[in-house]
């Protein structure tokens, strides 16, 4: 519960940070999605129960504040959490290269999913061009910011974790 609250509040701060970034550079079509990186991090670290709930809550908040289709980002973030969780089982999650690649890959999958759902819902929406022109930049932003954001999240998680010593003995990543 403590971790849930800490990460929930952290998510709120990241959401605000993301919005401030967007305000500082209004002309830029893409900007780093800190909250998305948190969702991927939560999945990669295989955080059972609170991970999917957090992912859903963050997606719902994003939908409520900025989205046009309520529930779309909530469902997408939950799926991203699950896919990240699957990948976290198979790779060495502390590698920077992995962190960048997994965040970039998940960004691509999430944007593709949103594009697919929106195109299915409204055949006149024609978001294909938007998807292909923005997805690469979005992958780059999220990938680049994965390293600093993940390292800060790891540090925070270590502080919050009750079994601090045990985590350093080798079970890093498991909550």
């Amino acid at each position: 519960m403590k971790k849930f609250l800490v990460f929930f509040l952290l998510g709120l701060l990241l959401l605000i940070a993301q919005a401030i970034w967007r305000m500082l550079f209004p002309g830029w079509r893409t900007s780093p999605e800190f909250l998305f990186i948190l969702v991927v991090y939560s999945g990669v670290n295989r955080n059972p129960f609170i991970g999917p709930i957090l992912a859903f809550c963050f997606g719902f908040m994003t939908d409520s504040l900025w989205g046009v289709q309520p529930g779309l980002t909530a469902a997408t973030y939950t799926i991203v959490y699950f896919l990240s969780r699957l990948s976290g089982r198979r790779f060495y999650i502390r590698s920077y290269v992995y962190q960048v690649l997994i965040v970039a890959l998940m960004t691509f999958l999430a944007k593709a999913l949103v594009w697919f759902i929106l195109s299915t819902l409204d055949s006149t929406a024609d978001l294909g061009a938007v998807f292909w022109t923005t997805v690469w930049r979005q992958m780059l932003w999220n990938g680049l910011f994965a390293i600093p954001v993940v390292s800060q999240l790891e540090r925070m998680e270590q502080r919050v974790s009750e079994d601090y010593a045990e985590r350093f003995m080798g079970s890093f990543g498991e909550w």
Partner: peptide, 18 residues
């Protein structure tokens, strides 16, 4: 349990979308 929870939440998201 995690897969089931994810499924429930995704369905909830799609319900909201609908």
């Amino acid at each position: 349990r995690v897969l089931l929870l994810v499924l429930v939440l995704v369905l909830l998201g799609l319900h909201l979308l609908s």
